[in-house]
Amino acid sequence: MLTRADLEAREAATLAPYATLSAQSRGREHPEAESATRTAFQKDRDRILHTTAFRRLEYKTQVFVNAQGDHYRTRLTHTLEVGQVARSVALTLGLNETLAEAIALAHDLGHPPFGHAGERVLDTLMAEYGVPPENTFDHNTQARRIVTRLEDRYPDFPGLNLTLETLDGLNKHDRAGLGPPSLEAQLVDAADALAYTAHDLDDGLRSGLLTPQQLETLPLWRELLARVPVQSPQLTERDRRTLHRELLGWLIEDLTTASEAAIRARGVTSAAEVRALPEHLITYSAPMRELLHETGLFLREHLYRHWRVEMQVEQAARLLQTLFTAYLARPSMLPPQVRAQAELDGLPRAICDFMAGMTDRYATEMYAALVPPSGPVSWLGELRN
């Protein structure tokens, strides 16, 4: 039987010198004994996997709400795809796969119902009703809030008491005074963008909101078609799956090759040296960065702002605004644990945390309890061509 010391020794012997080693972890905010048979990052990963917040990702929107079909990506399947990409690239580059996986599994825990539409609504509402300095909302900060405080699973500390390395990986935007993140955290950030670019194109085609003819105007897609022997625009289901698979492979290969070159050019020999650099080393080639930039603009214009998706966004906004203001006006409708939190954090913050934790389905049920059954919630399962 392998012990934690054996696993740490294996990391030291097999990982690249610039990888983050679990034996060199900076520890946890609340000291506790480590596992006899798991590394510190394995323990982090397992704790994240068993949270309530992680299970709720199954019924949280990526682009299409869960009720619209069984095969569209949800926050959960997106998270699993990000984890798969991060582990694959980490293995090739000699990085710590387990740390990358832990960060990937936690990176979207803070997303509210209805995707980025829900995030914008909660941010607007907190700006109006919140109390400084927490009168904002974004899913990255909320993910840290969940794992450091809101998940109530242990008697000796709040949250999950994750290692500082995993927590640092969740500081995607607010890095004042922290310096660049580890290569594992940089990798998850890149894997996140890679996964949603590929699967949003795939889901857009599946839904019919994107057409092969539209995609042929996109440089990334034209180059992909040159690599894959399919007949566009007459794409079969198998063709679509083939294109998605080949796109993932192409993006992963470019990310891996360009990152290896950047690491080699900088000559870093430790994780500490990585964190002292002013730039990220996990990157795409310059041509691929341009292709991905153009693809992001295309998706924003033709998928995320498609009129049917905009209808979904508007209805979600009205639903969440109605719930928030109703809870604010009548706190007695809130569960006891939320009212107890309000005594410590204030009512707006407690409502925001409660609503951010809702799934699309639960938020819809709570809204339906406030309006007649024939009211404006019937849209949820009806996004069709």
Rank of each mutant, 00 (worst) to 15 (best):
P132D: 00
L218S: 06
R55Q: 10
I263Y: 03
R227S: 10
D44Y: 07
L209D: 00
E165Q: 04
A326D: 03
P373Q: 03
G179S: 08
V147F: 09
A23V: 10
P233T: 06
Y129L: 07
R227P: 03
R26A: 13
T51I: 02
Q214L: 10
A191S: 13
N140P: 07
G357L: 03
L80Q: 03
V85T: 08
T163L: 11
L125T: 03
E223P: 08
H71T: 09
A190R: 11
Q321R: 15
I351S: 04
D156H: 14
A272Y: 12
D189C: 11
A86Y: 01
E290R: 14
R73F: 15
G159L: 03
V89Q: 03
R339C: 06
L344Q: 14
S182P: 04
S25D: 00
M358S: 10
V228C: 10
H111E: 01
S35M: 04
I351C: 02
K60S: 03
Y284K: 02
A12K: 09
P229G: 06
I103Y: 04
N96D: 00
R300M: 09
P372W: 15
L194D: 05
Q84S: 14
L243D: 02
A276Y: 06
A317N: 06
Y304L: 11
A67C: 01
R153V: 11
G27I: 11
A193G: 08
N140L: 15
T325I: 10
E343G: 08
M333H: 13
